[in-house]
């Protein structure tokens, strides 16, 4: 079972890396934040699995709980900050997602 879990951990790490593509590309600031939140959730799962792979899940699960809490607080704090701020830099909002869709152009 450990080898299955190890494979799953590698798989999750690959998914986590793929989420970074959205952080780098993301046309708007909110896309980047969303992808960062997804990466945080993936990291929690990765920590839990790595704990079982290493055979001492106790400490790793504590780390995972802490990471989940910090991830949530971080995302909500930044979202509330952006919500309350009077002006967001228009470049960060970006018009990159076109109204008329992709097929139209």
């Amino acid at each position: 079972m450990t080898s299955i879990l190890l494979g799953l951990a590698i798989f999750l790490a690959v998914l986590l890396g793929m989420n970074f593509i959205r952080v780098i590309l993301g046309p708007t600031l909110f896309d980047r934040l969303l992808a960062v939140g997804a990466i945080g959730t993936n990291a929690v799962l990765l920590l839990a699995i790595i704990g079982f792979v290493y055979g001492r899940p106790d400490g790793f699960l504590d780390l995972a709980i802490t990471y989940a809490i910090l991830n949530f607080v971080g995302v909500v704090a930044v979202a509330k900050f952006l919500d309350a701020k009077r002006e967001v830099d228009p470049d960060a909002l970006g018009q990159a997602a076109p109204l008329r869709g992709e097929r139209d152009q």
């Binding site: 991830n71 509330k80 109204l99």
Partner: peptide, 26 residues
Amino acid sequence: FIAATNPSGVHVLSRAALRKGVPVWI
């Protein structure tokens, strides 16, 4: 914890995005 916080985090982010006028794809 994840069942409670992951959807609500995304919700807070989406509400902020809607208020700041992120363009909507149609």
